[in-house]
Nucleic acid binder design. Sequence first.
DNA 1: TATTTTGTTCAATACATACTGAACTTAGTA
DNA 2: TACTAAGTTCAGTATGTATTGAACAAAATA
Lengths: 163, 163
Amino acid sequence: MRISQNKLAYIEEAGLMFEKLGMTRMTGRVLGYLLVCDKDAVTFDQILETLKASKGSVSNSTRQLIQIGFIEPVTFPGDRKTYYRMSDIEIDEILRNRMKLFSDFSSVLAKGRSVKERDDAVSKWLLEASVFYSWVESQIDEVIERWQQEKESIMNQHLEKKS
Amino acid sequence: MRISQNKLAYIEEAGLMFEKLGMTRMTGRVLGYLLVCDKDAVTFDQILETLKASKGSVSNSTRQLIQIGFIEPVTFPGDRKTYYRMSDIEIDEILRNRMKLFSDFSSVLAKGRSVKERDDAVSKWLLEASVFYSWVESQIDEVIERWQQEKESIMNQHLEKKS
DNA sequence: TATTTTGTTCAATACATACTGAACTTAGTA
DNA sequence: TACTAAGTTCAGTATGTATTGAACAAAATA
């Protein structure tokens, strides 16, 4: 049973997307495959074959994805293979991680201000920008909390809109 | 008048930060220099010398930064040089641009669901995740609006906290 | 018009890093 | 214990792209 052309195309798309997000293309492909494979779990070999990639490359990608928490290894008694499947990671986790970039960015801006030797329009901008980014970060925390509380209702609202 | 060691170190830091954000290191350096140079505007040559980079590289970086709107060229009558300075870009603009990634990400997730041939836990996750990201995007729009309205009071709150 | 100054363009290079493939480790099976 | 299967590691290669530097363009000056 070979995988559909559709899905292969999707896997490539996922690879490019994850590359844009700063991960490797191959890691994106493996995740894309796990997302759309329509199997409960897949073996290392299945990944190899489907993506036509090397063992080493797949080994790196699975490790990275496990580390981030996107996927998890599964094993079965009487079967020495390791299977991989999507873990039931909460989506807001992923966002929360990415938001760390904001506080880094905010710090760099703040530090810039401290390096300056005169107080000018740029100083003012640096202050404002660093406050803005750390404020936004705190607001996003609140947004995420609201999501957790109102998830069902938001989902329903969204589905209604489509009909 | 040579630039301080402090500032040079900061410029490198800015380079690394902007590299993390997907721009080139040199572009980050040029922006870092413009931020902390404590001059109203600097010439192409000053950038060259300070960063010890090539004309081509600086030319690329300034063009890129002008394009994004971070810096602007300035000229003066009787002076054939072009000067560059920070433009008074609104910080929320920058955030708004980055948020486009979210709708892209959301689309990829939604597309993944449409490629699947069975309705399982992953399908459910894909739906939830794509709704989540487009919802978050809309929430951030609201956050930005609130910033525009309450900017002064937020800044004051922040400054009080520090004291 | 010839010359000098300022900045751009583009082919070549340098650099970083993702990927490969072979050798190795680990653990189950005979 | 020897053998086989599954996955990892790592040195080398391939690939993409940032940077350089030389040649060029544009425009002011003499």
